[in-house]
Amino acid sequence: MRRRLRLGLTARLLAILVVLGLAVFPIYWMLVTATTPNAKLFSSKLSFFPDLGEFSVFGETFSDKGVMLWLWNSAIIALGTAALALVLAIPLGYALSRFRFRGKGLAGVALLMTQMLPEALLVVPLFGIFRNLNLLDSRLGLIMVNAAFVLPVVCLLIKNGIDGTPRELDEAARVDGCGPWRTLLRINLPLIAPTIAAAAVIAFFHGWNEFVFAVTFIFTDDKFPASVGIANFVGEQATSVHAMMSAALMYTIPAVVFYLIVQRYVVTGMTAGSVKG
């Protein structure tokens, strides 16, 4: 009986290891490819491990002005997306959490709908609107469109956060003569600082990862974010494979690391609004 149990445990451990291996393999393979010289990549023999002597490839990528400019553009777009989304979402989240007003239900439904609608389906009319606003081929334009589509998740997270802060504190602030804005800024926001940080990171990586609007709205090379620059690698013969994998890895790692930090909040943000339905 005990032996069977141990066998079961071993099998389970093995299964867990296999699943984890499959989960990380493509990213691992990015690392292996990045650190294998081109000549070796294009031979019939596969090498399965990263070559420690070839880590200089990352140094080369760091000094590659083109790649660095892409990553820089991505960072600017992502930061802008986070800032704009927060500025819009914080008052909205507060209103949805604390006020009773006519049209509140409608606002909630509208928010859910915008969260659910696939953004790529709206790329054609948005292209027209941004052309008329003169916001094509502009990083500001991308920031604006990204903020629009990440707004629902960010707002639901903040609303949930404020829901969790005690109303008594609001009342106390009110008695002391604080208006609603000051109550929000002085009382509620400091209390939900971790949620705000998580929401900012989620918005940041929405902007960091976004592709469909970036590839459509940006035409000039030096304004490309990394998503567009790296996508252009595919099917291109001129760039060496290991150099492009090293660029892709530098683009991937920040996304993965930061997502791991805020994972818990991502799950809440994505499911919170919808569960209540």
């Binding site: 699943v19 984890l20 989960a23 990380v24 493509p26 990213i27 393979w29 990015m30 490819t33 960091w208 990862n209 592709f211 990394a226 998503s227 790296i230 996508a231 690698f233 595919v234 099917g235 494979v241 492009m244 994998m245 892709a248 890895l249 683009y251 991937t252 996304a255 993965v256 997502y259 791991l260 994972q263």
Partner: peptide, 20 residues
Amino acid sequence: ALVTVPWAAPGVAVALIVTW
């Protein structure tokens, strides 16, 4: 944490490594 990696990796990077 490890099992979350595929979901966190940017789609464009995934497309590139899959193509390779």
